[in-house]
Amino acid sequence: MDHYVDITLHPDPEFAAAQLMSALLSKLHRGLHDTRRDDIGISFPEVERCARGLGSHLRLHGSAQALASLLAQNWLTGMRDHVQLSEPSSVPTGVQYRHVSRVQVDSNPERLRRRLIKRHDLTEEQARQRIPDDAAKHCNLPFASLRSHGSGQAFRLFIRHGPLLDTPHPGRFGSYGLSPTATVPWF
């Protein structure tokens, strides 16, 4: 994690920044998945300045070789007119670190009831009694709206930026560039 690349969204009168960031994350996910990369993490440097949302700045973290390999792929096809890409640069000295991870929230009571019926052989009425409509959990974390490549279902990818740490924690990143154990430099 000694290098980074900044990707900044251009303002667009037709698309909100949140919509463009969601599209960018979807493209990045495909790129990381297709190249089987687990050594590139992400962060959102503007997340603390945004009232809601992830902002318009995505930072990729990794080794110079890992970033160069990812950037050589075509994963940004269709997004190049909407983003500005920095050159890979060395991480400044004296930075802090943080975990940037996915938080999964069960927020759809209907889906939870279907799952309960299937797993515990209950009737729809029994499931409705166990999981009422107001049982949905609410999450105030910033998120990207994505669509599953496998099922086609729309979902929200909630992202948590953990507390600042003085030392890095090594580890692997998933195909969204997120990890509950590995840290990325924060600056």
Score class of each variant (00 low, 15 high):
Arg128Ile: 07
Asp133Tyr: 09
Asp121His: 15
Gln153Glu: 10
Glu110Ile: 12
Lys27Asp: 14
Ala72His: 04
Pro45Asp: 14
Phe155Val: 14
Val100Met: 08
Arg160His: 03
Thr167Trp: 01
Leu28Phe: 10
Tyr97Lys: 06
His61Phe: 05
His138Pro: 15
Thr77Asn: 12
Gly31Gln: 05
Pro13Val: 12
Gly162Ala: 14
Ala135Asn: 11
Thr35Gly: 13
Arg172His: 01
Leu70Ser: 07
Ser148Trp: 08
Gly174Met: 06
Arg147Ser: 03
Arg30Pro: 00
Asp39Ala: 11
Val100Tyr: 08
Leu122Tyr: 10
Asp34Phe: 11
Glu87Ile: 07
Glu125Ser: 09
Leu146Gly: 00
Arg115Glu: 01
Gly55Met: 05
Ser90Trp: 14
Ser69Leu: 07
Leu71Thr: 11
Phe173Lys: 07
Asp106Gln: 15
Asn140Gly: 15
Phe44Met: 02
Thr167His: 01
Thr123Met: 04
Leu9Ala: 01
Ala144Thr: 13
Cys50Glu: 00
Pro185Lys: 02
Val184Thr: 04
Arg119Asn: 01
Arg128Val: 05
Gly53Arg: 02
Phe187Val: 08
Asp39Gln: 11
Val100Pro: 00
Leu71Arg: 03
Gly150Ile: 14
Ile117Trp: 13
Pro13Lys: 00
Leu146Glu: 03
Val91Lys: 09
Leu112Pro: 05
His29Glu: 04
Arg102Tyr: 00
Leu141Val: 15
Leu24Thr: 06
Ser101Leu: 13
Phe44Pro: 06
His149Phe: 10
Leu28Lys: 03
Gln84Gly: 15
His10Lys: 14
Asp6Phe: 03
Ile159Val: 14
Arg128Lys: 09
Arg130Val: 11
Gly53Asp: 00
Pro170Leu: 07
Ala23Pro: 12
His149Ala: 11
Asp166Leu: 08
Val184Lys: 03
Gln73Thr: 15
Val184Gly: 05
Phe187Ile: 06
His138Cys: 10
Ala51Asn: 03
Leu28Asp: 02
His3Gly: 02
Asp6His: 04
Ala136Thr: 14
Leu122Trp: 13
Arg160Tyr: 09
Arg156Gly: 04
Ile7Asn: 06
Leu24Phe: 11
Ala23Tyr: 15
Val83Ala: 11
Trp75Asn: 07
Trp186Leu: 12
Arg113Asn: 02
Ala135Met: 03
Arg113Asp: 00
Arg49His: 05
Pro163Lys: 14
His120Gly: 09
Asp6Glu: 09
Arg114Ile: 13
Ala17Lys: 08
Ala154Ser: 05
Leu157Trp: 08
Ala144Ser: 07
Tyr176His: 13
Leu76Lys: 04
Pro142His: 01
Ala182Asn: 01
Asp12Ala: 04
Met79Trp: 13
Leu58Asn: 04
Gln96Cys: 15
His82Ala: 09
Arg113Val: 01
Leu122Asp: 02
Asp12Pro: 08
Ser43Gln: 02
Phe158Val: 15
His57Glu: 07
His149Asn: 06
Asp121Arg: 15
Asp2Asn: 14
